[in-house]
């Protein structure tokens, strides 16, 4: 006969059962009671469309996002707390980048030319009505919203290098960068930026244009070009397409849409793209952290983001104890929000 090893099975079962249930009940209570403290801000990551939904429902108190989302929020009755221009004048935003080895100088010259032409078209006040129409078509928003949004975006041909460095310093300080530029094989930060922000093509193109406004570079064969769906910042791409600039200098243009800059960087890594319009943030982050070899050849826009708040916020201090949303960690918008919070003496929980 075997000796008893589990004589008290009955009791054990019931005891375990009861304790599991008790634990569950306890944890429901615990997990639902999120507590907030003074002088800290609850920072959450949300996609911009979600930000709009959640601020309408009162789940978040503020958010920072790029146009047209702030303008859409304004349409719904929220107010702009600060535009990105107020927080950080001339801050970099979107850029045109290419994968090293996937585009030769001829291709780049053609691309930069089309981009510069389109940007100049946007900035020409005579084209205002046409631009609003293009913007509306591109983003699927009504003309009133896009015309407000367009006012907040500063379309540029090349980013401000000093401000780009400033953003890089932020990434370095907040330890979001995992690697140093030395690890990537550069002697110094200066030499990295000289390589990363490639200005010679741009300079060559505008010099030619200055000499002869009708200059058209030699036609390149084809290009695979990525951009973010409906991002008003990337309007120049749409204009370049609609006004025929791209077709003038390329035999074939293959466009690919992406949901965000991270996805574009992954496509670069896989060699699916030659060049793309994307945020300077994912470009820099993934260039350094993941070593995806790209260079920036042109700027797309500066500024163009804004912080939107619920009614009762009028100064940074008012954000204490609130929940604010950013579109991603290490983004320019993240930096903008942290600058504002620091001004109000607030820390992120």
């Amino acid at each position: 006969m075997k000796m008893a090893s589990g004589k008290k099975i009955d009791k054990t079962i019931y005891f375990r059962g009861i304790s599991i249930l008790l634990l569950a009940a306890l944890l429901i209570a615990a997990s639902l009671s999120g507590c907030t403290t003074k002088n800290t801000v609850n920072l959450v990551k949300l996609s911009p469309p979600d930000m709009l939904e959640q601020i309408k429902l009162g789940k978040i108190d503020a958010f920072v996002a790029w146009e047209p989302f702030p303008s859409k929020a304004v349409e719904s009755g929220f107010k702009v707390f600060m535009t990105s221009k107020d927080i950080w004048p001339n801050h970099p935003c979107c850029v045109v980048a290419y994968k090293i080895g996937k585009a030769d100088d001829k291709t780049l010259r053609a691309l930069v030319w089309a981009h510069v032409k389109a940007t100049r078209f946007i900035k020409n006040p005579e084209n205002r009505d046409k631009i609003i129409e293009y913007a509306s078509e591109f983003t699927g928003l009504d003309k009133r919203t896009v015309s407000i949004a367009l006012q907040n975006i500063k379309y540029v041909e090349y980013p401000d290098e000093k401000e780009f460095r400033h953003y890089y310093e932020f990434l370095k300080e907040s330890k979001i960068l995992k690697k140093s530029v030395e690890e990537l094989g550069y002697e110094s930060e200066d030499s990295f930026f000289n390589d990363f922000l490639r200005k010679d093509i741009y300079q060559e193109v505008i010099k030619k244009l200055d000499e002869n406004p009708n200059y058209v570079p030699e036609k390149a064969s084809s290009i695979k070009l990525g951009y973010i769906t409906g991002d008003l910042h990337h309007l120049a791409l749409y204009v370049a397409l609609k006004e025929g600039y791209l077709n003038q200098v390329f035999d074939k243009v293959e466009l690919k849409q992406f949901p965000n800059g991270v996805a574009i960087m992954e496509a670069f890594r896989l060699g699916e793209l030659d060049a793309a319009y994307l945020g300077g943030a994912p470009a820099t982050l993934k260039r350094i952290n993941d070593g995806i070899e790209i260079r920036i050849v042109a700027g797309v826009n500066n500024e163009g983001s804004a912080i939107i708040v619920m009614g009762d916020v009028s100064k940074p201090e008012d954000l204490a104890g609130k929940t604010v949303a950013i579109p991603g960690f290490g983004t320019v918008q993240d930096f903008l929000m942290r600058k504002v919070l620091a001004e109000g003496g607030l820390t992120v929980k």
């Binding site: 599991i20 634990l23 569950a24 944890l27 429901i28 997990s31 907040s174 330890k175 979001i176």
Partner: peptide
Amino acid sequence: DPVLGKTIIEHSISSILRVVTGSGIAFL
């Protein structure tokens, strides 16, 4: 980690709490 400022244990606890709550209700 410097980005989120939470240890992996803290992240695990958050996930476990949600799992225990959700599945606790399911088992009830």
